[in-house]
């Protein structure tokens, strides 16, 4: 019996060790190192003195970090709110329509998912060209007689972020659509048919029966949207550049983090201490907001 026990332990060790090593070395260790690093002052890549929470104090309360940080955070919030409001609601509508087999549903489903597979970088560069002052979008507006609406879409402070968000919605709306489609397809058909035969209208059918039953997928999409919004980087990098042009109007935590960690023309040399503090803020924000949204939606969950 004892021999069997030992061999069982050995087998378990054999199976889980490689994966656990990778996760430990490349996910958990860096998490703790971020915390540790953020408590020190740095000279280039050399850790110097223990400074306690000084890096966080500078990030949140001194020029220029404070201004840049809250400006970026505001943009990330804009990303989250508009993505939830436009992309996820549109996704819910599309998912619903597809589940109800509107004409050509199979065709729509396949086409909607095409941009989801493309890299953000390729999509960003493609639309970056189309949105140039001499690009396809302005040319199209001229063609249909709306020349008055022509704009340098990525060059105006108040338009640049909404434009990039719309491009990202163009790329990603197919994802929530098909997740919601799968969730609605899981709602028992008899339930819907019974309600339908009772003469319940579309609107009521959706909000009273379907919506409460697909709350788990709404939670998942919301959490993914939070993680996605806090990690916006490639979209900015490809369309308006690492500095979040024009005049930091499109700057996000992701681009600010990169500039601080690796240095740029604008921010000068890398600042590992402040950078680690930003990294930690991203961790905490992701974790807390995800938990919060799980908590909020879980309360509304209904089971059959």
């Amino acid at each position: 019996m004892r021999r069997i026990q030992t061999s069982k332990v050995l087998w378990i060790t054999f199976f889980i060790t490689p994966g656990l090593l990778v996760v430990g070395l490349f996910i958990l260790l860096p998490l703790f190192m971020s915390l540790y690093n953020s408590l020190f002052s740095w000279k280039q890549l050399i850790r110097v003195d223990f400074v306690g929470l000084e890096n966080f104090r500078r990030l949140l309360g001194s020029f220029p970090y404070q201004e840049r940080f809250f400006n970026a955070l505001k943009n990330n919030l804009t990303w989250f709110l508009s993505t939830t409001l436009i992309q996820n609601s549109l996704g819910l509508l599309f998912g619903y329509l597809l589940s109800r087999n509107v004409p050509f549903a199979q065709f729509f489903k396949r086409v909607f998912f095409i941009p989801v597979l493309f890299s953000i970088v390729a999509v960003g560069f493609l639309w970056g060209m189309y949105l140039k002052p001499t690009g396809l979008v302005n040319n199209f507006l001229k063609l249909v007689g709306l020349a008055a609406l022509q704009r340098p879409w990525l060059g105006l402070e108040h338009l640049a972020t909404p434009t990039i968000i719309l491009v990202n919605i163009w790329r990603w709306v197919g994802f929530p659509s098909l997740v919601f489609l799968a969730a609605i397809d899981n709602v028992p058909g008899e339930c819907l048919e019974a309600a339908y035969l009772e003469g319940v209208g579309e609107w009521k059918l959706f909000w009273k029966i379907i919506f409460p039953l697909i709350i788990p997928s709404i939670t998942i999409i919301t959490v993914l949207t939070i993680i996605g919004s806090l990690n916006v980087f490639e979209q900015i990098y490809t369309m308006t550049g690492l500095d979040g042009a024009p005049n930091y109007a499109t700057d996000t935590i992701g681009t600010l983090f990169y500039r601080t960690a690796f240095g740029s023309i604008d921010a000068g040399s890398p600042e590992i201490g402040i950078g680690s503090a930003i990294g930690l803020v991203i961790y905490v924000l992701t974790f807390v907001t995800s938990l919060l949204s799980i908590f909020v939606t879980r309360k509304r969950e209904v089971q059959l």
Binding site: I27, L28, L29, Y283
Partner: peptide, 26 residues
């Protein structure tokens, strides 16, 4: 516990750890 250790990676954005990862890879 082992399962949780693996799952913790789902919620933790790896991008946020780019500084320690960079130092590690270096």
């Amino acid at each position: 516990l082992v399962y949780m250790l693996f799952l913790s990676g789902i919620m933790l954005p790896l991008k946020a750890a780019i500084i320690p990862l960079f130092l590690l890879i270096k």
